[in-house]
Design a protein around this nucleic acid. Sequence first.
DNA 1: CTCTTTGGTCCATAATATGGATCGATATTT
DNA 2: AAATATCGATCCATATTATGGACCAAAGAG
Lengths: 287, 287
Amino acid sequence: MEQRVSSTPSLSGAQSVDRALSLLSLISYFGDQGATLSELVEQGGLNKPTTRRLLLALIRSGMLEQDSLTRRYYLGEEAYILGTLASRRYGLLQISRDSLTTLSAKTEDTSFLSIQRETSSVCLHREEGTYQIRTHALQAGYRHPLGVGAGSLAILSALQDEEIEAVLEANHSVLVTEYPNLAPSQIRLDIATTREAGFALNPGRILANSWAIGLAIHYPDRRPAGALSIAAIDSRMQAARQVELVALMQVEAKKIEARLAHLQPINGRLKRPIIPVRPGTRIDGAN
Amino acid sequence: MEQRVSSTPSLSGAQSVDRALSLLSLISYFGDQGATLSELVEQGGLNKPTTRRLLLALIRSGMLEQDSLTRRYYLGEEAYILGTLASRRYGLLQISRDSLTTLSAKTEDTSFLSIQRETSSVCLHREEGTYQIRTHALQAGYRHPLGVGAGSLAILSALQDEEIEAVLEANHSVLVTEYPNLAPSQIRLDIATTREAGFALNPGRILANSWAIGLAIHYPDRRPAGALSIAAIDSRMQAARQVELVALMQVEAKKIEARLAHLQPINGRLKRPIIPVRPGTRIDGAN
DNA sequence: CTCTTTGGTCCATAATATGGATCGATATTT
DNA sequence: AAATATCGATCCATATTATGGACCAAAGAG
């Protein structure tokens, strides 16, 4: 009870919901590894009893699950179901899956789909290539500050200049401490190069010899919806092949953008499903 | 403040989180149509200001969005992202997508994937067939009480007898009022038929001439993970073709079950993603 | 065996959520 | 066109609810 701000004029409220969903979001970054209570207390900025109480509420709703043995917390089945249902409005991954398959099949290298989330990019999908040497610097669920990584840089470069500055400022301390090769000034240079070339290149900036090419996917209004990227070892990413890869990616990006244009106006009226269940009927430990 | 139960011994707490997530779940049943505040007040069992306050909290977190014009509420992008990230543990749909494509391609009819959610089944995906006459009784996101519909009946039939009775009891009033052709007693008969035949048949019980066949998908421990189903007009669902369809579906169900067996033990330790963001830093209207 | 760490919980206190009442805006009716 | 109904949204005094320091048990670590 320190966080008094006293400004909250009226509006707002339901702060435990904010906190609980912040925790949920935080947990999502732990991926398959799951999160421990201590980690969540440390990184979530809430104390132990509060954290635990909110986690229990999330578990009750099915959004979260706790491994009874390891005591770790994982996203639950309800999160998966809601996401699947939401995918009809936001189904970038669904729409892009074919393209990722195609890209990895044609190039033999691993391809990725990333999106923006606040000031970071998140990898939504990794499509394995067949080539024997693969970089594992990026996995589904991994997050990096915008500008770090090829897809991430492609997205950042597609933002407006003032947004870019806001992002870089927000990420300043993280960049300086965690990514010595990627100071904000360096990223600004990379953005210029990206815009000029029409694609983003990560020449092993995060992991040596692990190069990648990224291409932004745009909404009809030109805002970035995400980015495709392809990663390989440097020997497979020299100038000539870069051109080939970009050409392939451009074809797929175009396809995705065409489908995206059809996805948005789904707000049309559909028949109502049947809705018998009555929530709000006081959930205790009654499950 | 009527709902005093006074029993809540200790445990529990964070009730607004319960309520908010109940609302979120409720909204998910409205699908592409979105939900209005009034509908949510009516069906959610909470009053208007409370409902609205919780909705605002959900919007702040990105789990929900409100159409600024129609004022309707829809699942938000954050829900989609979380679901995508959770899909590595619960990716039944991902695993089943190929099978649905195959089934619809081979049969020319529309195929579905459904799962259990509490005492209902929810359609996660509808894969269109090419045949000119198609039934639109089932869409992704639609919910029916367990036992209503072919996939739904297949799932119910795969449960244990005592679970079945619990489900039927919970759904009793809904079945009686909403589905005159599907009294609990009728469903019990259908279950017996389903278990004997090895597949579920819906002979136009919900919508005349709209028949469907359902086949349960099992976890390694035999609990149902969901169900495949194929729907068509009755003339395309006579005995001979039923056998053909079931044979095709069994092949696909086997494939899915094999992949499911590999999905579960993903609790392995993976490299940690980078986690710079600090939630819990008081979210107001600051966005 | 003791010390430390981690998961989990208790409970008096204080902060927060609650919902009846109210308001403005947009249909609907007469 | 006026009157009425409906709906979304918000206010604010009240009392229910969340908070977090302190504590406990269990499982490593030394």
